[in-house]
């Protein structure tokens, strides 16, 4: 009789506990919903006709080329382009260096050197973004100024698109590298042996066979890296300069990204100036979503063609 009782009790405990697990998961997942709802709600409010601080025209906002709070002009069109340009440039610098470093760590370096490199990459990954910001404001701006004076170009004391790009490249490098390291490590040994047996040198095998097989994983790393480049706020705000109009294509011009706009001049807690940051946040989320979809789409297409081959 006792056994029956404990089994029944256990069954009840089981049900209760598994419902608790479900509840916790629902809480976690619901934050996504909360974020979407609030950003949508507060972000769209300046464009609604009953907005209390003066309605902002939505099209002017989305496609505007000037952002001047002092004159009440809020256009983020050029800021979107700036954000895309800086993130993609940073990716194009960081990507080759990351992949080559990952290849080096997994395949080419001797054991101890490989361990050392992993520690270096881990360290770079765990440095807080504010420290990168201090570093950027100190050294990267001076570096940009030196290059600019060599080319005979004037800068705004080093704050420029180039500084932002270098900073972002350094910050996303560890992300892409660690994921590439995992991908490259999981390329099957048989494939590599087969390649060597067919007469290819080790280097040829590394570059042609291993890298191609790890393509999917490396690509995923790049997507993550770009995501980080889009979202970086405090460090970028220290070297961007926050230009009032744009878009900026000149490497030595000051620039402005969505995140640096959201964090700059944060003093009020009410008013149009404050609420518009939610709208910019909404734009940022949408950009990240679109880029993620687009890149994932390309990744899957590349994967399919690779499989066919």
């Amino acid at each position: 009789m006792n056994n029956l009782k404990t089994t029944k009790l256990n069954k009840i405990i089981d049900k209760v506990v598994s419902n608790i697990y479900l509840l916790m998961t629902l809480i976690s997942a619901s934050f996504m919903l909360i974020i979407i709802i609030f950003i949508l709600f507060k972000g769209l409010s300046p464009f609604m006709s009953n907005y209390q601080y003066g309605v902002v025209n939505f099209l002017d906002f989305l496609f505007g080329t000037q952002y001047r709070p002092d004159m009440g002009i809020y256009g983020v069109g050029f800021i979107i382009i700036n954000t895309l340009v800086s993130a993609l440039l940073a990716l194009s610098i960081a990507f080759p260096i990351s992949v080559l470093t990952a290849l080096f760590v997994v395949k080419i370096a001797p054991q101890r050197l490989s361990e050392f490199m992993k520690v270096v990459i881990d360290l770079l990954a765990s440095i807080p973004s504010i420290v990168y910001g201090v570093f950027a404001a100190g050294i990267i701006t001076k570096f940009t100024m030196t290059i600019a004076s060599m080319l005979g170009v004037q800068t705004y004391g080093g704050t420029s698109l180039l500084s932002v790009v270098i900073l972002l490249a350094i910050m996303i490098f560890p992300t892409i590298t660690s994921i590439s390291i995992s991908s490259i490590s999981s390329v099957s040994e048989d494939l590599q042996h087969a390649s060597l047996a067919l007469g290819a040198t080790k280097v040829q095998t590394n570059f042609k066979v291993v890298l191609l097989s790890a393509k999917q994983g490396i690509f995923a790393g790049a997507i993550l890296g770009v995501g980080r480049a889009f979202g970086e706020a405090t460090a970028v705000s220290m070297v961007a300069g926050n230009k009032m109009f744009g878009p900026t294509f000149g490497l030595f011009n000051t620039t402005r990204t969505l995140t640096s706009t959201m964090i700059a001049g944060l003093k009020e807690t009410s008013g149009l100036d404050y609420d518009i940051r939610f709208s910019i946040g909404l734009v940022l989320l949408i950009i990240i979503l679109i880029t993620n979809f687009g890149l994932n789409f390309i990744k899957n297409k590349v994967g399919k063609t690779h499989e066919k081959n």
């Binding site: 440039l89 194009s92 900026t248 000149g250 490497l251 030595f252």
Partner: peptide, 15 residues
């Protein structure tokens, strides 16, 4: 992008 940058660079600043 590189092409855009080069044009951007040259239109900025003295030589």
């Amino acid at each position: 992008l590189v092409a855009l940058l080069l044009t951007g660079c040259s239109s900025n600043g003295s030589t």
